[in-house]
C-alpha cells in the first residue's frame, strides 16, 4: 500500500491551476521540487485537508483525506514552512501542549531530540533563530510515533552542518519500511542526498516523477558548440542553457550517439535546465 496516493487532483485559484497525479510508496522518501508558486504548498495543504480539492481523490496511509480525520492525523508528522507555534511559548511548554494534543506523545523522545538538536528548552519561540524554529518543528513531528512525515521546506534556514544532521534524522526515520516522507524543498542538493524519488512540479503541473537513481542514469549533461548542439536530435534534449562559449544541455543518454562525451547530471541542473528549456 502506498503512503500517499493522489489521483486527478485539481485545485483552481485565480491565475493558478494545480493538476496532479502522484504516489509515494512506504519506506521511501519523495522530494517535491519546484520554483516558488509551482504548487508544492498547495499540494501539501490538499494532503493535509487544509484546502478542499476541486477534483480528484487523495489518500494518505490508506485513508481518504478529509478535514475531519483525527485518527489519521495522529499518524502524521507535519513541518510547515512557517511552523505556526505561538510566539510566546518555549520548547518545554510546547511539549506540554502537544502532550495534550497527541495520544502517543513521547515526552522522553521529545526531550532527547531537543538535546540532540541543541534546542534551548526555556527560550520563547520568537527568540529562536529560523534554524532553531525549524529544528523544534522537526522534533515535534518526530515525537508522536508518526508513520508519514509531510515536510514543507524543512531545511530552509538551516546551516549546512545542521542540515546534514536533520537529513540524517530523516534517513533514520525511513529505516522502518512502514514509514515514508514527502518533502518539498528549494534546496535541491538536500533532496538529492535524501530522496528515493524526485518529483518536479512546474506551474501546477508534474514535469516528471521518477526514482532518483534512474533519473541520474537516464539523463546526462553535455557541453557542445552551437553547431554540434544544432545537429543533435531535438527529442534527446530535455533542456539547454546557451552561453558565449556554447551550449550546456541535459539530454537522454539513450538518444544521443554513444561517442558523445556525457557527464553525470545533478538533480539541480536537471531541474533548472528542464524549466529553462521549457521557458525557451
Amino acid at each position: 500500500m502506498n503512503a500517499i496516493e493522489i489521483r486527478g487532483l485539481e485545485k483552481h485559484y485565480p491565475g493558478f491551476d494545480l493538476q496532479l497525479d502522484l504516489s509515494l510508496p512506504r519506506g521511501c522518501i519523495l522530494g517535491l521540487v519546484g520554483e516558488n508558486g509551482a504548487g508544492k504548498t498547495t499540494t501539501i495543504k490538499a494532503l493535509l485537508g487544509a484546502i478542499r480539492p476541486d477534483a480528484g481523490s487523495l489518500s494518505v496511509l490508506g485513508q481518504p483525506v478529509k478535514e475531519e480525520n483525527a485518527a489519521l492525523r495522529e499518524r502524521l508528522g507535519v513541518v510547515l514552512d512557517d511552523p505556526g507555534y505561538p510566539e510566546c511559548v518555549t520548547a518545554r511548554q510546547l511539549g506540554g501542549i502537544m502532550a495534550g494534543v497527541f495520544r502517543n506523545w513521547d515526552k522522553a523522545s521529545f526531550a532527547a531530540l531537543l538535546k540532540q538538536l541543541a534546542i534551548p528548552e526555556g527560550k520563547a519561540f520568537k527568540d529562536l533563530s529560523r534554524g532553531m524554529k525549524m529544528k523544534l518543528s522537526i522534533a515535534v513531528a518526530l515525537s508522536h510515533g508518526a508513520e508519514l512525515l509531510i515536510l514543507d521546506e524543512p531545511t530552509s534556514g538551516l546551516d549546512p552542518v545542521v542540515r546534514d544532521e536533520v537529513v540524517e534524522l530523516f534517513s533514520e526515520f525511513t529505516r522502518d519500511e512502514q514509514h515514508a516522507i514527502l518533502i518539498s524543498s528549494h534546496i535541491v542538493s538536500d533532496l538529492e542526498k535524501l530522496c528515493d524519488y524526485i518529483a518536479f512540479l512546474h506551474q501546477g503541473r508534474l514535469l516528471l516523477c521518477e526514482e532518483k537513481d534512474r533519473l541520474l542514469e537516464e539523463y546526462g549533461l553535455v557541453h557542445l558548440s552551437r553547431a554540434d548542439f544544432a545537429a543533435l536530435d531535438s527529442a534527446a534534449v530535455i533542456g539547454s542553457r546557451r552561453s558565449p562559449y556554447g551550449v550546456s544541455a541535459v539530454i537522454r543518454r539513450d538518444a544521443v550517439p554513444a561517442a558523445l562525451p556525457v557527464e553525470p547530471v545533478s538533480i539541480e541542473d536537471l531541474f533548472v535546465l528542464m524549466i529553462k528549456g521549457d521557458a525557451e
Binding site: A50, E67, A70
Partner: peptide
C-alpha cells in the same frame, strides 16, 4: 494552518 494538521476536529 498548523492546528488544522493536528489530530483535533
Amino acid at each position: 494552518l498548523y492546528c488544522s494538521t493536528l489530530p483535533l476536529s
